[in-house]
């Protein structure tokens, strides 16, 4: 037993059961930050199905598998033809459907399950403040989404870095391309996690929650379509605000420019409204988070 002296106070696993009665706990009690960290890690593990049944692992890992496969394929093609097929940011955009699918599976897993089983009183009768519960879950989902996009981006980077013909200079240039890509993945993660988790937190039924998440993200795209064919240039340029995906892309076009839309402008023009898109994204995330916190102030009291 390489454990410190406190091990003497515990029932040592000698293979014999001693009934030594109830023992008071004299050890350390961690503070709010560590409890928050524990809940966050627990949420992150739940997102990928760790510590859960095999069934709970299928969907998250299916998405992870597809996204990684695409990244590896892109890296392979690039090493053959010597030119990037898609930038890191374009990769994130191309994966948006899978991100939506992932949120629809994982967000209900994180919050709806707890609502359904009625376990929340057990959390809220502990020192942890209600807001911490909601924020830890949100942060876990943000991290999971960021890993979902950032991990494959890293694969693409490794593929490019090992096949570059320009030596260290090539690797450095590639890294400069990767970092904005990772930031863009972070933007996807924050927007989709905050909206998705808010929708999922409204119901304890996982199927409804998943449907609601998909609906919010996909049903808004026709609105974008309608707005973008209106005979008003301003309406066309602001159309992207109507849906989370196009909103994120709008911010991307504004901030990343040719990393997202190479050379000629893409099909979605945002004109000079870039800052409006950025502001809208910030407001959307802040609003969704505020509503999530409000939801958890009320629930299960």
């Amino acid at each position: 037993m390489p454990e410190p002296s406190t091990a003497a106070l515990r029932p040592t696993p000698t293979g014999v059961i001693h009934d030594i009665g109830y023992q008071r706990y004299e050890g350390a009690r961690l503070g709010r930050r560590q409890v928050f960290g524990a809940l966050y890690l627990h949420g992150l593990r739940t997102a990928f199905g760790f510590g859960r049944s095999a069934k709970a692992k299928i969907f998250p890992w299916l998405v992870v598998g597809i996204v990684s496969l695409v990244a590896v394929a892109l890296a392979a093609v690039r090493s053959q033809i010597g030119e990037p097929v898609a930038t890191y940011a374009q990769f994130a955009d191309a994966m948006s459907w899978l991100v939506i699918f992932f949120v629809a599976v994982v967000a209900p897993e994180l919050v709806s399950r707890d609502l359904r089983s009625g376990v929340l009183p057990l959390y809220f009768s502990r020192p942890l403040p209600r807001a911490d519960y909601a924020l830890a879950k949100l942060l876990a989902l943000v991290t999971a989404l960021w890993l979902l996009l950032g991990g494959p981006q890293l694969l693409m980077f490794l593929g490019a870095a090992f096949t570059t013909k320009q030596g260290m200079r090539g690797v450095w240039n590639e890294l400069l391309d990767l970092l904005p890509g990772l930031l863009y993945a972070g933007l996807w993660a924050v927007v989709f996690a905050s909206v998705g988790l808010l929708v999922a937190s409204l119901t304890g039924k996982r199927a409804f929650a998943a449907g609601g998440v998909v609906a919010v993200f996909l049903m808004t795209t026709p609105i974008v379509g309608v707005l973008s064919i209106l005979p008003s240039r301003a309406a066309n340029e602001l159309a992207g605000l109507a849906s989370p995906s196009t909103l994120v892309q709008g911010v991307g076009i504004w901030s990343l420019g040719d990393l997202l839309v190479e050379g000629d402008p893409g099909e979605m023009m945002i004109g000079g409204f870039g800052p409006v898109y950025a502001l809208a994204a910030v407001l959307l995330v802040a609003g969704a988070t505020a509503l999530l916190l409000a939801r958890y102030r009320k629930v299960a009291s």
Partner: peptide
């Protein structure tokens, strides 16, 4: 304080050991 609610409050797919361990951590136990 420890609280035992009146109503059903246990997630059916977790084992008792996992659930109680997790809730212990939520109470600040290492």
């Amino acid at each position: 304080v420890g609280y035992m609610p009146e109503h059903d409050c246990l997630p059916p797919d977790l084992s008792a050991a996992e659930l109680v361990t997790h809730l212990g951590r939520m109470s600040g136990l290492p």
